[in-house]
C-alpha cells in the first residue's frame, strides 16, 4: 500500500518533467566545469601540437595558417573528454558550458 500513498502524493505534486527545448529552458542547470563546446584562443597557441597528439578520437586536425601550425577542432568527432584542455601548456583551449550543439550545417561543427 506504500505505492498507493506515493501515487496519491504525486497526483498533486509538481511534475518532475522539465519541458526543456520548448519551455522552461532556464531550468536546465549546467554545473560549473561542464565539458561542452570547445573555444580556441589563437593568440595563446604556441604550435606545440600536444592537443593533436593526445586527442583520443582524432578530432584535432593540424593545419598551417599565416602564424604557423595550429589545431582545428571537429566537434562531430569530439568526445568532450577535455584532454586537450588538460595538456595545453598555455591554456589556449577551453571547454565551455555550451551544450546545444546540433546544427544543420557541417561547417558549424568546425572550431577555428
Amino acid at each position: 500500500m506504500s505505492m498507493l500513498k506515493e501515487i496519491q502524493k504525486s497526483l498533486f505534486k509538481k511534475k518532475a518533467t522539465v519541458l526543456y527545448p520548448f519551455k522552461e529552458r532556464e531550468k536546465v542547470h549546467i554545473p560549473e566545469g561542464f565539458r561542452g563546446k570547445i573555444v580556441f584562443d589563437r593568440d595563446k597557441c604556441t604550435s606545440c601540437l600536444l592537443c593533436a597528439r593526445f586527442c583520443p578520437s582524432g578530432a584535432c586536425e593540424i593545419v598551417t595558417d599565416e602564424k604557423g601550425k595550429r589545431p582545428i577542432f571537429h566537434l562531430e568527432l569530439c568526445l568532450f573528454c577535455s584532454q586537450c584542455q588538460e595538456v595545453c601548456p598555455k591554456g589556449a583551449i577551453n571547454l565551455t558550458e555550451e551544450f546545444e550543439l546540433a546544427a544543420f550545417d557541417r561547417k558549424a561543427f568546425t572550431i577555428r
Binding site: 565539458r35 577535455s82 571547454l95
Partner: peptide, 24 residues
C-alpha cells in the same frame, strides 16, 4: 519514480566530473 530519483545522483556526478555519464 526510480529514474526520477536517479537524477539526484546523475546531477551529483555531473557536478563532480563535468559530465553525466562518461565521467572521465
Amino acid at each position: 519514480y526510480v529514474w526520477r530519483d536517479r537524477e539526484v545522483v546523475m546531477d551529483l556526478i555531473e557536478m563532480l566530473t563535468g559530465n553525466r555519464v562518461t565521467t572521465a
